[in-house]
Design a protein around this nucleic acid. Structure first.
Lengths: 83, 83, 83, 83
DNA sequence: TAGGGCTACTTCCATC
DNA sequence: GATGGAAGTAGCCCTA
């Protein structure tokens, strides 16, 4: 490989690394923002764990959720933990 | 709880949920962007797995510097050499 | 500190480190065993996620469980996600 | 599903749950033992925080050796020097 | 489907 | 004794 070609490859690599690291920083910022919102909600008296559950339920497809609950009921019944 | 109070709580909850969901969307966008950059790098001939490793090593180096300082502080404290 | 005293301290430290590392190995073995059981259950057709949920529910105090569910219901109602 | 089949499933589920719960008890015992050792070390005059750090550094060193080999393999592969 | 990285939960320690 | 913060652990998801 010629020096010129090597240099091009190096510059490209450098560029990719920088772009990725930049994006990962942004991602971290957002993650921190989310954490802040949860903290704020907690300060207002909401239960973080339950709030997380709400978010996750809304993300889940409604059908899938019902199915999960149905399976859970089934297992609990099998264990005699439900009336 | 009065109806008015309940309504306030509902509005707050709704607001928190919306803010979180908005931020998670943004986060997903960034994640997708990162994926795109890796794909582009692959198209240019770079090995994604190695590229990931490079990124992770650079992150580790940064962390490790902080870590080293933390250890030093810890030992100095343990030896009663810090206030 | 005399050499003898230092040596005692070193031996003690060494001993503590060894005892802890030994215990942590045992702990890891158990963790792996647990993972194996889940894998086996999966192979028999059980849904791991639900199985985990069952285990965790059984661990929770019954009262606490009801309370958590009550809070969740409350939130879901507030968001109009129930009936 | 026939009653007999259901019963088999129930027995299996029960068995899995019991095995997991048993193992988690053992795991908790070990965790408590570890806590005891730290407490004992503290009683002998050692700084728990520093002790934890020592343990974690020793673990890291071990991991890092493996990591270094993994990186080497990765690079060799990327350069087409491994099959 | 297995492995690794990321995220989240829990636990522990220190402070008030 | 409680609360907040940090660290270690475990679960989930995504990629290969």
């Amino acid at each position: 490989m010629s020096n010129a070609t090597e240099e091009v490859a190096q510059d490209q690599l450098r560029s990719f690394v920088e772009r990725i690291e930049r994006l990962e920083e942004e991602k971290k910022t957002i993650s921190d923002d989310i954490k802040d919102v949860y903290a704020e909600a907690k300060g207002t008296g909401f239960d973080i764990k339950v709030l997380r559950k709400v978010i996750s339920l809304r993300k889940q497809d409604a059908n899938e959720r019902q199915e999960q609950e149905a399976i859970l009921d089934l297992y609990l019944q099998a264990l005699g933990m439900m009336n």
